[in-house]
Simulated assay, not measured.
Amino acid sequence: MIEIDQLSFDYRTFSKEPGLKGAGKTTLTKLLTGIIQPTSGSVKVAGLIPGSHQKKLLRQIGVMFGQKSQLSWNLPAVDTLNMLAAIYQLKPDRYQARLRELCDLLDIVEIVKTPVRKLSLGQRMRCELACSLIHEPSYLFLDEPTIGLDLLTQEKIYNFLKTENRLHQTTIILTSHNVRDIEALAQRLLILSKGELIFNDSLNKLPLQIDHADSYCLKYWINDQADVREEIIHDPQQLFVKMEKFQPEQIISLSKSGISIEEVILKIYQREKQ
């Protein structure tokens, strides 16, 4: 269980006045995992205070930041996984079983043996997930886990996280600006704006149809590159079906546009406060 009471954190710099600016999603993740300690209020994860760095808590949490890596650039990911097994003092048979499970589910059996510098962003992110979960934590904190990833890789990560949750009842706390992350994974949604919680409820209470929030513009050649066609597609699954009908050289470009779910909710609640 995660307990939060009047939690706040103030940033102090030489370039601005004290106070938390922005939504505060990454800051909240850092507070929940004990990376930083609150200015006021309290937080507990599994009945323990994150800032105390108790070994009991550290064994129960896994963390992955989409823009920061725990992998060594010149070494294969399996070396980092072996190191983490030693840090967490995992029993060899338990570690090997968990490693096989994660490699199979994430489709990284061969990838983990390749130096990280030679991997694509999507491959690295799947290895990062394996590192965050190798010790079988009860809580997994993900900060922008799909940032910069293509649609197919995002789908692989969604499927993996749902499987991990189903098999091990892992509680997954995810922060994201990506509407697809929310649609694919979230059972309960919290929206932060300027450090304040403005929405906390189930997805079906959200005053927005998030499955219609994004659109994809697909341009492609037909008739032996004699004609260029353009289609606007709203459903990612329809997009995948459409793209499977083409050869790679037929696809000219694929772009995504949409609305920020945070901006929409903020405007709705701002009207209520006026």
Rank of each mutant, 00 (worst) to 15 (best):
D104T: 02
L99I: 13
C103P: 00
P115C: 14
K118G: 00
E101R: 15
R98C: 04
D93F: 07
V116N: 09
T114C: 06
L99M: 07
V112D: 08
L105M: 09
C103V: 03
R117Q: 12
P92H: 12
T114K: 11
C103G: 00
L90H: 04
L90E: 04
K113C: 04
K118I: 07
T114V: 14
T114F: 03
V109T: 07
L105H: 08
D93S: 08
V116M: 01
Y88G: 10
R94L: 14
K118D: 04
Q89C: 02
K113Q: 12
Y88I: 03
E101M: 15
D104W: 11
E101V: 14
I111T: 13
L90C: 10
L102R: 05
T114R: 02
Y95W: 15
R100H: 09
R94V: 07
I111C: 06
Q96G: 12
Q89L: 08
L99R: 15
R94W: 08
Y88M: 03
L105V: 10
E110F: 13
R117C: 03
Y88K: 13
D107S: 14
L99D: 12
C103S: 15
R117L: 10
R117A: 13
D93P: 01
L102H: 12
Y88H: 14
E110R: 15
L102W: 14
L90A: 02
L106K: 11
D104I: 01
T114D: 08
P115K: 09
K91E: 13
D104V: 05
R98G: 00
Q89G: 07
T114W: 08
D107Y: 01
D107Q: 09
L105S: 11
C103I: 05
K118W: 04
P115F: 02
V112I: 12
E101L: 15
K91S: 07
Q89P: 10
V112T: 14
D104L: 01
Y95S: 04
A97V: 11
D107F: 09
D104G: 06
L99Y: 12
K118T: 00
L106Q: 11
R98V: 03
K113P: 06
L90V: 08
V112P: 10
K118S: 03
P115V: 11
V116Y: 03
K118C: 01
I108R: 06
R100N: 05
L106G: 09
P115R: 12
L106S: 14
E110S: 14
K91M: 11
A97P: 04
V112Q: 13
Q96R: 15
P92W: 05
Q89I: 09
R98T: 06
R98A: 01
Y95P: 00
C103E: 09
K118E: 06
V116L: 04
V112C: 02
C103R: 05
D93R: 11
K91I: 12
R100W: 02
T114H: 09
L99F: 15
A97F: 00
T114P: 02
L99S: 11
L90R: 01
K113H: 14
R98D: 07
V116D: 05
Q96H: 11
K118Q: 02
V109S: 04
K118V: 03
I111H: 12
E101C: 15
Y88V: 02
Q89K: 08
A97S: 05
L90Q: 06
I108N: 05
R117S: 10
L99A: 05
D107P: 07
L106T: 13
K91D: 14
I108E: 07
I108D: 00
Q89F: 02
L105K: 11
Y88N: 05
R100M: 05
Y95L: 00
